[in-house]
Design a protein around this nucleic acid. Structure first.
Length: 508
RNA sequence: GGCCCGUUGGUCAAGGGGUUAAGACGCAUCCCUUUCACGGAUGAAUCACGAGUUCGAUUCUCGUACGGGCUACCA
């Protein structure tokens, strides 16, 4: 391992839609690795396929990075010395590398039309080989610079006939490399096809672009999803042909995050009721909305934490990690090689832990907005933080605060009267009338004194406090939930407490 | 079909030739709490299978099965 080289890693999404769990985790691992080693985290936009380009997707990606706090050091918006960071803006760069490969005999021009390719696939398709590839067994039957006479190739090129450049995969060679997560991985070149490197529109494919840009941007370590493993031999060979194997970054292929049935898809989210994208994403073409973790009520700290330990752990029993702790402890070698099924129940547990761990002031703004959206105005700012602190252990997702804290700022709309009525009687009625009186007369107002006074009154009337506590709770809260009833009364204030008791008495 | 990767409780996982095979989520029971939670305790539940190597395999090797990924002028 050459440790002299500065650590530079990149996340290279294509702006084709929302950013899902796996993508964010790849960002996270890149980010953590870079920061751990004092290196740079680069974001490169891989927009070489104009057919799949989705307006808004690039801004969306940056918004997700901002929300998660995983901001790059270099990117199309952050700048940097290795730009441009959008592959579409680098288009003129790639052709020379492809041509160099042709010149050296490692690639060739192919003039086959889409129709001809389709025909080839249909012709060679058999039961044993349902998806024939453009490989060493088939390229001799196609129209390319390997089969056509040199003068005709020149003529076609001169006439600007649409063509691509394909890599010429060697026959029966073994390509192997050491993956930082899975160790030695090897392939036989005979079974990998002659991938297109430069498309007919002059844009590079991923295969060429990733190698050229990783080289030009001096990437030291390349992390990507396991789905790229089968095309790794193409990239390894390209590195060897173009820049030398020594210059090649170290690879790590991250395990996939699985849904209930295989690779996690946004469909799984819709089907099983959990988010798959980091933030809400609306497909501009269809208007279809896919829910995000942010809007579902996850804290970014929790989101990062749960993603980090989905496929990685530090060997200890620790599960809750702050970002600085992750940066300190992360190592790519401790990432598992096996895929992990995403467990939404555990994800919620992480969020719950973080709601408890963080200060209420850290997320008060989000909660206030949630309340206001439900028509609950927070007028008393001084009470707001104490209220949140009082109820936060009951909240798993941010929207839970609406139910748990809402009644402090707006009287309940519904009361669980059925919980009181069956056992209601005259003596209880008169107790509460007296309680109102004593509350009105009291000149202190804190939970402890309230409770003492309440219990003394109950004892004097020979009623068990337990018989009275639940009714009082319903009067103040509306239902059988929430913190200690006298703590609620304290925060509610004398006036509001009395008002609510009086109102409920009229309903009983 | 071919190729590649993987496989420890339902899920995330530690461990890695000899262990009572950690821990967490979830689930169940109990304690605390005159609500709901939080917290605490306990419990059920795991090394895919078959060969080999070995005094001894969950751990190493090879097969098999199963799961997943890839197989586009998509990334």
């Amino acid at each position: 391992m050459s440790s002299t080289k500065k650590v530079r890693v990149r996340f290279a999404p294509s702006p084709t839609g929302g950013l899902h769990l796996g993508g964010v985790r790849t960002v996270l691992y890149n980010y953590l690795f870079a920061k751990h080693h004092g290196g740079d985290f680069i974001l490169r936009i891989e927009d070489t396929d104009q057919n799949r380009y989705m307006p808004g997707a690039e801004d969306y990606i940056f918004n997700c990075l901002k929300w998660t706090g995983l901001e790059p050091d270099e990117s199309p918006v952050h700048g940097g010395a290795f730009g441009p960071y959008r592959q579409s803006e680098r288009k003129p760069l790639y052709r020379q590398y492809a041509e160099q490969l042709v010149k050296n005999g490692n690639a060739y021009y192919a003039f086959d039309t889409p129709e001809e390719l389709e025909k080839m696939r249909a012709n060679f398709k058999t039961e044993q080989n349902p998806s024939p590839q453009y490989d060493h067994t088939i390229r001799s039957a196609m129209r390319n610079s390997l089969t056509l006479p040199a003068n005709e190739v020149e003529k076609l090129l001169a006439e600007n006939v649409r063509h691509v450049i394909r890599i010429k995969m060697p026959e029966n060679e073994t390509v192997c490399f050491t993956d930082m997560i899975r160790g030695e991985v090897s392939f036989n070149t005979s079974v990998v096809d002659d991938k297109v490197l430069l498309k007919a529109d002059g844009m590079p494919t991923y295969h060429l672009a990733v190698v050229v840009d990783d080289y030009l941007m001096q990437i030291s370590h390349a992390f990507r999803g396991e789905e790229w493993l089968p095309s790794a031999p193409v990239h390894i060979l390209l590195w060897k042909y173009l820049f030398g194997a020594d210059a090649m970054p170290q690879w790590a292929h991250l395990p996939l995050i699985l849904g209930p049935n295989g690779k996690l898809s946004k469909r799984d989210g819709a089907k099983y009721g959990f988010p798959v994208f980091a933030m809400n994403w609306t497909n501009p073409a269809t208007g279809e909305l896919t829910e995000g973790f942010k809007e579902k009520g996850f804290l970014p700290e929790a989101f990062i934490n749960l993603l980090a330990v989905l496929g990685w752990n530090d060997g200890s029993e620790q599960e809750i990690f702050t970002k600085p702790e992750l940066i300190e402890k992360f190592s790519i070698e401790r990432v598992h090689s096996g895929g992990a099924k995403f467990d939404y129940e555990k994800a919620k547990w992480f969020n719950h832990e973080w709601i408890k761990k963080l200060q209420a002031s850290d997320y008060q703004l989000q909660v206030k907005e949630l309340l206001e959206n439900k028509g609950i105005a927070v007028t008393d700012q001084a009470q707001f933080i104490p209220v949140l602190d009082l109820v936060k252990e009951r909240c798993i997702l941010l929207p839970d605060f609406v139910e748990q804290a809402g009644f402090f700022f707006k009287a309940p709309e519904k009361y669980d009267l059925d919980a009181i009525k069956p056992k209601w009687n005259e003596s209880k009625q008169s107790f509460f009338v007296a309680l109102i009186r004593s509350f009105e007369l009291s000149n202190t107002w804190n939970a402890h004194d309230l409770e003492t006074g309440f219990k003394e009154m109950a004892a004097a009337r020979q009623i068990k406090p337990g018989e009275l506590l639940l009714p009082l709770r319903i009067m103040l809260v509306g239902g059988k939930f929430g913190p200690g009833v006298f703590q609620i009364a304290e925060l509610l204030g004398k006036e509001e407490t009395v008002t609510r008791i009086k109102y409920l008495l009229t309903l009983l």
